[in-house]
Amino acid sequence: MSLPHALLTSLLEKPSSGLELAQRFSKSIGYFWQASHQQIYRELVRLEKAGWVQSTANEGARGRKRTYEVLPEGKVELKRWIALPSEHKNLRDEMMVRVRAAAVVGPKGLTKGIEERLESHRKQLALYKAIRKKDFEGKKETRTVALQRRILEVGIEYERLYVAFCEDVLKELA
């Protein structure tokens, strides 16, 4: 996936200033595709130079606050990108290697790391469930809402799986 396409998607959902986009991004797409504010701002400049977005100065705003919106060429690019095949990426998780290593050299020191990871995944799971309740319960199930909800459900299942994994490993280590 590429950051430009993630930003085009987010701007099609709602035209925004760079700051608003970065804040919304970190609370949605950012859960599965991270980008710093600096990366987002740099990419917005590139998108504008490519003719995929345009920015307009916000009336009465202090500084250089601009609102970005997707141009027809940007929408064409996003449609082109959507149609491309998506490469499957294998899981790459250091914790899995640590558990495997503990199986052959002993688990000394591993418990604390697993407990920390368990807590982190429990918090993320609780956050995703809160988002589901706030953003999707009782909402009319349009195609857009259904697809966005499905992405969230994948995140929930991932967190549930990781919580169960950590709990199982801790039982084995006890």
Rank of each mutant, 00 (worst) to 15 (best):
L3E: 04
L3W: 03
P4D: 05
L7D: 03
L12P: 00
P15H: 04
P15D: 08
S17E: 07
S17T: 15
S17M: 04
G18I: 01
G18K: 00
L19F: 10
A22P: 00
Q23E: 15
F25T: 00
S28L: 04
F32Y: 13
W33G: 11
Q34A: 15
A35S: 08
Q39P: 04
Q39I: 09
Y41E: 08
L47I: 11
K49S: 13
A50H: 12
G51Y: 06
W52L: 02
Q54P: 01
S55I: 03
T56L: 13
A57E: 15
A57I: 11
G60R: 01
R62V: 11
G63R: 02
G63Y: 09
R64V: 10
R66I: 05
E69L: 08
P72S: 05
V76Q: 15
E77A: 15
E77R: 14
L78E: 06
K79Q: 15
K79P: 00
W81H: 10
I82G: 06
I82R: 08
P85K: 06
N90F: 14
R92E: 15
D93W: 13
D93G: 01
D93F: 13
V99W: 00
A102Q: 01
A102T: 02
A103C: 05
A103V: 05
V105Q: 04
V105L: 03
G106E: 07
L110N: 02
T111E: 15
E116T: 11
E116H: 10
S120G: 11
S120A: 15
S120Y: 13
H121V: 04
Q124H: 12
Q124V: 14
L125Q: 04
L125I: 07
L127S: 05
Y128A: 02
R132M: 08
R132Q: 12
K133T: 14
K133Q: 13
K134T: 10
E137N: 08
K140Y: 12
E141K: 10
E141P: 09
E141S: 12
R143P: 02
T144Y: 12
V145K: 02
L147R: 09
E153H: 04
V154S: 08
V154Y: 11
G155I: 03
E157S: 09
L161P: 01
L161N: 13
Y162M: 15
V163G: 03
A164L: 10
F165S: 03
C166A: 11
E167H: 04
E167M: 05
D168C: 10
D168I: 07
K171H: 10
K171S: 09
L173E: 14
A174L: 14
